[in-house]
Design a protein around this nucleic acid. Structure first.
Lengths: 395, 395
DNA sequence: ATTTTCTTTTTAAAATTTTTAAAAAGATTT
DNA sequence: AAATCTTTTTAAAAATTTTAAAAAGAAAAT
């Protein structure tokens, strides 16, 4: 008995998840996406309506025959998800409802992940935000967290940062202390999930999502699902041997893509250019300490500062060379450029395209479309929320 | 009604396929692998026994409880598969029974795939072999063919070789002319399938199979299935930008892996060495025209000829560098070195390993095991047969 | 403008499949 | 040698899918 109850519960959760992603659907839609029969969907949906989780709302526009009824999540069914997006130095947090509306504006703190107490600092930050939101804890489904490093999402471990004492995973540690379900994942994987669920990879099967930021991360959508590799390390794009430059990478090897393309390195190059007294608006911008050098650099790019553009173009070309390799190996239908660095948007494309043209067999390259993310800043937070939703049974 | 009949038929076929791959299985085994319930499997198996397709044979060794009954394909159920493995110049053909025993010894002809009449030449070769085998055509399940080039297995098209006139796929053309089901696939994909079904990738989920031969091909097993990419071109390993050498590749680009690593190039280097009067046993070997230069070269390697070894080591190092990239991207649990060039076996490993150590982050590299294929020569033929079996309904 | 035909969704009944539980068969332990 | 424990096999109950029919619109034809 209990196995079939669980099965029914999973179907209920699947339907809720579909409505979470698609806003509204007909019974036939739900049947197709859950791969369950219509009668079963019908009765399950009726059960969900009785329990007040979803409502029926109006008819969908006709596609030729009888107009289907639309179903959507009941706005009065109030459940919330805490979404956390971390990078080495800064942590963002917001709380979403099931319509992906922020019920708490994004909160930011400086939090050094390499520090020993970082896990506990995160815990008190989260607790502080929960208090601030005044949301009843009963109504919190849980917490989704994106973070850099070697993360094994299944085991809930981060092997690079935020070590916790004892023989317990970071995920379990946080979950125990906060008395809420917690799920963690690698930032690049999450950004790929965001594009898959809400962005430019939606409804596609084989997509590569490049996370341009401190490093150059990669999330791979294979057969419509995030591919993590046999031990969760797939997509280590930034340390493939590629560059002709001999510069030493932080990983200890030479020739890594990261050496040429990380935002950090670009800013360093910009700082060097300023020191070298090159003609650039960055000189003035860097004096304004109200914003970080990164922000100044990105602004300079948008304003077409020649030095900034040239630094960016070099990096973009290297990224393009890396993408040429990926295209040959993976033959994706689309590559989505996402992450903080993708803000520079259209500036990157010519150099990337040039590298792809130079290093790809045309027959293969023409199968792959390159797009920019439209989510950019919110991507990781959205996906952190969907990571939690994905793992919830809505009990 | 017809849909459920088809479903039942597919289950029958799935059971036969499992027995084809695993020789013998218990009902529980079959249930687990088909993901169907035991009662359903039991009744389907009984049906297959009644129809004479499978038999019950003895008890399996105990694992602690009641010993399960074993089922296997009825040796009197005689069905055969024609397996064809092509390369640019040579075509091999054999006929297998459902136990993978050759009922016709491997036949070989020279067949230039680039020639206009190559498809028709293949057809008459196959017809000739069928006649020679004296097998009743009713008992032939069909033909599986592996070939180089850009092959779209789903559409049955080869965009590189063996063009046929008219608006018809190569697969349909062959099938019509031969009045038998025909399935084609890329050689590297097939070799990966062979390793997955019969070789070193068995029961694993994420494996890369490198086909060392005229070029360096790649077949990818992702989530326990062959990954083909969005348009069937995934795994174009040999044209990724990698080499520092500036030599022009046949694809029109520079820096391709192929320029350093194909067997063809290696033999060319060996020929050059002989011309340069270097101290090598190849000089004498190349005079013996009974074998190809490729065979001589491989023999020289096995006999530890220093020039041959050095050529091979250079190539192996480049392959290793390419594998380092793949390991970072795919994080596979195993890499299998297969294909004709893998004959050189243990000779390759040190250079490959050295490159991987040099270019991989240790944490990632240690997740991946490198193995040599044990199938080597028969791999493509076996997989060509299994390609056909995979697509048969055994009606 | 009204009827007919064609689509598509929804409901209901029949057929199939899975679950669950019990029985049977063999191995291991007391 | 009996009792306990595992695992496979069989049988009955529950759940799910298939199939078919009905209902509801939209488009086409008279």
């Amino acid at each position: 008995m209990s196995a079939t109850i669980k099965k029914a519960q999973r179907l209920r959760a699947d339907i809720i998840k579909l409505l979470y992603y698609k806003k509204k659907s007909s019974l036939t839609d739900l049947s197709k996406h859950t791969k369950k029969s219509l009668p079963l969907i019908t009765s399950t949906v009726n059960g969900l309506i009785e329990d007040g989780l979803i409502i029926e709302q109006g008819l969908a526009p006709s596609t030729g025959g009888r107009r289907p009824l639309n179903f959507l999540l009941n706005p009065n069914y109030k459940r919330y998800i805490i979404a956390v997006a971390m990078d080495q130095l800064t942590t963002q947090l917001t709380i979403y409802d099931l319509s992906n509306h922020q019920v708490l504006p994004t909160q930011v703190i400086d939090l050094d992940m390499t520090e020993g107490e970082s896990a506990n600092m995160l815990i008190s930050f989260i607790e502080h935000c929960i208090k601030k939101s005044t949301i009843n804890k009963e109504h919190l489904l849980g917490i989704g967290i994106g973070m850099p490093g070697f993360v094994n999402a299944e085991k809930g471990m981060n092997y690079s940062f935020m070590q916790v004492e004892g023989d317990i995973s970071l995920q379990d540690y946080l979950s125990n202390k906060l008395s809420l379900p917690v799920y963690i994942d690698n930032d690049s994987s999450l950004i790929a999930l965001a594009e898959l669920n809400f962005g430019e990879a939606r409804n596609l099967k084989d997509v590569l999502v490049v996370n341009i930021g401190w490093g150059t991360g990669l999330g791979m959508i294979v057969n419509g699902k995030l591919y993590r590799g046999s031990s969760g390390y797939a997509g280590e794009f930034s340390h493939i041997p590629l560059s002709n430059s001999n510069a030493l990478c932080s990983c200890g090897k030479r020739g890594c893509l990261e050496v040429e393309t990380s935002l950090l390195i670009m800013v360093q190059k910009a700082e060097a250019a300023v020191k070298n007294d090159e003609e650039t608006s960055l000189k003035a911008l860097f004096k304004d300490k109200s914003k970080s050098h990164v922000d100044h650099f990105l602004n300079a790019v948008v304003k077409q500062d020649p030095v900034a553009i040239s630094i960016l173009a070099d990096a973009a070309f290297q990224i393009g060379k890396g993408l040429a390799t990926l295209i040959h190996i993976m033959n994706p239908e689309r590559i989505v450029l996402s992450g903080r660095g993708a803000k520079a948007g259209k500036m990157l494309l010519p150099s990337i395209q040039q590298a792809i043209n130079e290093f790809c067999i045309p027959r293969i390259a023409e199968q792959t479309e390159i797009k920019f993310s439209t989510l950019i800043n919110e991507a990781e937070l959205l996906a952190a929320a969907s990571l939690m939703v994905e793992n919830s049974l809505f009990e």
